[in-house]
Design a protein around this nucleic acid. Sequence first.
DNA 1: CATCAACGTCAATGGTGTTGGCATAAGGAG
DNA 2: CTCCTTATGCCAACACCATTGACGTTGATG
Lengths: 235, 235
Amino acid sequence: MPKRVVPEAARRRRRPTRQGRVLSHELIIATALRMLKEHGAAGLTARRLGLALGADASTIYRYFRGMDDLTLAIADALFAAALESWRATGDWRADLRALGLSIYRAYLSHPQAAVLTASRVAGRPHEVAVDETILCILRTEGFPDPDAVRVYHAFIDQSLAFAVLDAASLALPEAARQADQEVWRETYARLPAETHPHIAATAPLLVARMNDSGYPAALDMLLDSAARQLRDRSG
Amino acid sequence: MPKRVVPEAARRRRRPTRQGRVLSHELIIATALRMLKEHGAAGLTARRLGLALGADASTIYRYFRGMDDLTLAIADALFAAALESWRATGDWRADLRALGLSIYRAYLSHPQAAVLTASRVAGRPHEVAVDETILCILRTEGFPDPDAVRVYHAFIDQSLAFAVLDAASLALPEAARQADQEVWRETYARLPAETHPHIAATAPLLVARMNDSGYPAALDMLLDSAARQLRDRSG
DNA sequence: CATCAACGTCAATGGTGTTGGCATAAGGAG
DNA sequence: CTCCTTATGCCAACACCATTGACGTTGATG
């Protein structure tokens, strides 16, 4: 007796099955990114992804070992995008700044993906390529090794940290974002009455400030510090 | 005809039901935090949480509107812990530094929770209390308002960003962490052969550096910058 | 005592990731 | 051409998930 019964109907009508491969890693990742942007992190499920691809959910497992693996691939796609949109000029400081902003922009361009993959750092190829690039720039410029490592870590930590955090607020659904703003507006409006008498006028300023990121400023501070280090050592 | 059939057995034997309330918001949050630490973010489910509490999963919904609501409550508990372990001394710079490190430590003491709640910023009470505290310190010290806002944002952004990112690597299961280290060790060992001849000896240094956080340094840089600002303005 | 809200359980619903079995299709070997 | 292997896709099934509604029980309030 067979363990599994194949329904008669399924056995009867044979679908005009496709010829050749329909899917690919790239197509699946691109579709997943689109779904993330449109429906948020919770909206990306194997079944819906399959539907969007015109395929069965289980087909995805021919390409990825699981949703977890797919998540890592998506994370690496962000690094790939960051590197692709970056060009070296030879000026180490300008190059590092551009690379940092490039990473930052890649994350912000897919906030849902950034949040989804925030905690996944696993030495994927493009991620490693970014690391190699940074270290290569620093070494070429003549940073002695312990300093190069320190600058590299500060740089990548800071870039990723800001990217993830800023992406997180972008990743909120529009409704939640507006609700948040409302809460903050009230908080800010209420806050100063107790500690400062003349502040009502500055509440809008506080709210406006919410939409900016501290990343560029932090990045410049870091590069300043690195440049000073380099000058001190060589001069 | 009743829509739902109540089984005879259940109707028969009445359980010796408990008297008084068994659960509380605090108990549920504490248990959830414990589960997060022990089993990771994926291990926190309504069913298992109920089991750990000696209650049915559905009971949790008497206290929280859903797992999402519970997540927000957990996030706020981190801010509460940060504030509780902090004491003001009157020195604005030392106080801010201590508060930043306090937030950082609170997140790192529950890495799983930090990662789980990274993208949830929703104006919960203790979170707002932290914000009020920071702004209050800056205003009391005499920061004019636009500067206070700027410093506040840089401070909280940077603190949270580093906390979340560093927590993310701590939140990895031990096996994954070791695997990651292995990948990086290989990468670092392989990297310099192409770009630098004498670097093999520094690979261990790079790996060791992995375990440090750039947060304290970044925090000091930020406070330096703020202090300079304040001096320039008043002097 | 009667009422009521709070609290807890049970059973059910519709969704999830994942797997094993099966059916093709493509491509090479004979 | 046939035969075999491998890659690719679908289907049905499994275990688990969050959430809900009906129901019983309790303690407090009138």
